[in-house]
Design a protein around this nucleic acid. Structure first.
Lengths: 341, 341
DNA sequence: CATGCATCTGTGAGCGTTCACAGTAGAGAA
DNA sequence: TTCTCTACTGTGAACGCTCACAGATGCATG
């Protein structure tokens, strides 16, 4: 060995027991809640643990309990989206934190390719994790069904589309957020309100468009399909959609864009076309991602409560693991007014 | 139970042995390389494994081998940076992939607060992971020393500053990258070349500034401290630095900015001050982050080979775990010419 | 004084692996 | 034939923990 300290053999529950003058069983009881342990014994064990620097061996524990005390964060998304989309960062970080508070490690799994998906599924189905935080937007993602079939507790981020299986999920109220934004545009006097949608196989794509349509009807504005341009959440798709809109309907005075990233592209396209925002056209985004602050002008948007979404996902998953039924949690969004609308 | 499939008791090595008509030992040997196993026996075991759907129980294995066959990705950074900096995404994803290829799961640990740091260290020092991929930039980060002291194999991303302990790391050639950029600015005719630096307690902050200084000297340009403005890698710090530079040295015709994120801020500030890029002032960034493509004008920058950095980190760590000495790996950067310079 | 109950404690078994070791069979050498 | 060597195989003993169970103690109740 050449490293500084040779790793000493770590203390076991035996060492602690001997040190404290009690049996293994008593130490184990102290470790697991301390019920049926006399105060004296508990104190002795606590002291012994501190003296020996004992830390439980999770492998040994898992071997007998059959639980791993860890959960997977499984991302089944095309790579690009993970690279580009700052939402994942926020979600991932918040989940890690919420789990860390319970001393549960998070295994990060990314299944971009078919091969990675197979590998990850095998790992999960082998029971190496107690549950899965799933981030996947494709409707009909086979992973969802597979996991459900295998009996692995799952909580998805966003409502899984086209899924017959009943699985738990946590989502922001996309439809309501969209309504808020379109109402806001209407309230500020806009009457030719277009939209750039998300992909139709994602909950956000579907729901935000639905919210847009509902609100137009509610405000008495005519439904006009030329005002609807498709996007795929990427920046460039926003740019392209904006070009399409300007060509098809040059008289638009507002656009509700289904993601901030696309809104960046829209702003660029408008700038290049010489349209002023918000004077000529108001632009509303969705997400309140960090990018929304750095656009010029800064972006009026719908805030998704990522911190709450994450903590709810973790809470729901742990409850699920503990045996509760799958539940759906819908969280409210919030309109953030900035310069673009 | 209400879930679809009740989790069946998974097959053990015993089941496979019985099914194949051999002993546990033989199955174990097949699992671990297949040496000293007859072709007949191996075939029988392989078939039995396929039939039973056997997957090794890693807890049982770890219990006896003393290895966890997993590694931690430990991030000890102020939160904001993780949120904002797209580099982490790329690094994290590539590391996950490189590890997945070896069937080694990655535990994500984020130590923003002192409490999280303690918790994560305790976990790592308990031997729950075989090694650590460390992303930490603060010079004198106590985590580095603690891990080294505990004898845990560590590979850092970027050279750990102010560290007496000899630990392995993988880094891009910051200094050389900076030189390339400044030479490029010089070659395009610029003679008043300023710089916005990274934090002085990070390797990137130090080395990129050193490269800048060296190249100025090499080109015969005078060293002028008023041309050096400090930043902290954040967008706003770039904006602020640009303002400072314009005030102190209004005649600058180029700026080398030590990160793309800061370069965004610089571009904004210049746009607001009415300076055209690149006509009046050329701007060069560093990182080639996704954001570099979406600025207006697009950003000329230095590409850090994140994919190679990640694979090298993983390779080095696994070698380290296998008993090799710590090594330093320096990877070349590349100048990416776009519109801003 | 026996009985019951609640609280506490120690003991053995077993979780699913790997590893060291003992053993078997067959080939080739003496 | 006998011995040695190599290729292969099976068997117990661990690894460090939890869990079920059996005892032990003290106290209230009949």
């Amino acid at each position: 060995m050449s490293t500084a300290a040779s790793r000493r053999r770590p203390a076991t529950i035996h060492d602690v027991a001997r040190e404290a003058g009690v049996s293994r069983g008593t130490v184990s009881r102290v470790l697991n809640g301390g019920h049926y342990v006399s105060p004296t014994a508990k104190a002795a064990v606590d002291a012994a643990i501190r003296r020996t620097g004992y830390v439980v061996n999770r492998h040994a524990r898992s071997l007998i309990t059959g639980k791993s005390d860890s959960v997977a964060f499984l991302l089944t998304e095309p790579q690009e989206r993970f690279f580009e989309d700052p939402n994942f960062n926020v979600l991932l970080r918040a989940c890690t934190q919420a789990l860390a508070a319970q001393d549960i490690p998070l295994l990060l799994m990314i299944a971009g390719t078919e091969d990675e998906r197979r590998r990850n599924l095998r790992y999960i189905e082998a029971g190496h994790v107690d549950g899965v935080l799933l981030v996947s937007s494709h409707s009909g993602d086979p992973v969802v069904a597979r996991l459900h079939e295998a009996g692995v507790p799952v909580v998805a981020c966003g409502k899984p589309l086209g899924q017959t299986a009943k699985i738990g999920y946590v989502a922001a109220d996309d439809r309501d957020g969209a309504r808020d934004m379109v109402r806001h545009l209407y309230a500020s006097g806009r009457r030719r309100i277009a939209t750039v949608t998300g992909p139709p196989d994602t909950p956000g794509g579907v729901e935000r468009l639905a919210g847009y349509r509902e609100t137009l009807a509610e405000c008495g504005l005519p439904a006009d399909e030329t005002l609807i341009a498709p996007g795929d959440y990427s920046r460039v798709s926003g740019e392209e959609a904006a070009r399409v809109l300007l060509e098809r309907a040059p008289d638009i005075d507002a656009v509700f864009v289904a993601s901030d990233l696309m809104a960046q592209g829209v702003l660029d396209a408008f700038a290049r076309a010489g349209r002023r925002v918000p004077e000529d056209i108001a632009v509303g985004g969705f997400d309140d991602s960090p990018a929304a602050l750095s656009t010029r002008p800064s972006l009026t948007t719908i805030r998704q409560p990522w911190d709450r979404i994450s903590t709810e996902m973790v809470r729901t998953l742990l409850a699920r693991i503990a045996g509760e039924e799958p539940a759906a949690v819908i969280l409210p969004t919030e309109l953030v007014r900035r310069e673009s609308a």
